[in-house]
C-alpha cells in the first residue's frame, strides 16, 4: 500500500480526476473530502461490505420454487 503524509488542506490526485482532500483533523478522526466523477462509487468500507455480503447471498445458484410461499403485501395479480 502506498502511504503518503499530508497536512490539513492538502490533497491527493488519483487518475487525474479524483481529488482527495484532508479536510480536518479531530483527535483520532480525520475528515476527508472527495471529489470524483459522478459514476465513481464511493462508500464507507463497512457500508460497502454489508451490502456486498447481502448481494452475494442474494445471488441465485439454483432456481428456487417460490410458488408455495405466502407473501406480505396486498398485491394479488
Amino acid at each position: 500500500m502506498l502511504i503518503l503524509s499530508r497536512k490539513t488542506g492538502e490533497k491527493i490526485i488519483i487518475n487525474g480526476d479524483i481529488e482527495i482532500t484532508i479536510a480536518e483533523l479531530r483527535g483520532s478522526e480525520v475528515r476527508i473530502g472527495i471529489s470524483a466523477p459522478k459514476n465513481v462509487s464511493i462508500y464507507r468500507e463497512e457500508v460497502y461490505r454489508k451490502v456486498q455480503q447481502e448481494n452475494v447471498k442474494a445471488m441465485v445458484e439454483k432456481t428456487p420454487d417460490l410458488t408455495k410461499v405466502e407473501l406480505k403485501g396486498k398485491k394479488k395479480k
Binding site: 451490502v51 447481502e54 447471498k57 442474494a58 428456487p64 420454487d65 410461499v69
Partner: peptide
C-alpha cells in the same frame, strides 16, 4: 434484491 435461504419461508428483501 431478494435473498432466498434454503427455507424459502425465511426469504428477505434488501
Amino acid at each position: 434484491l431478494v435473498s432466498i435461504p434454503e427455507n424459502p419461508e425465511e426469504m428477505t428483501v434488501n
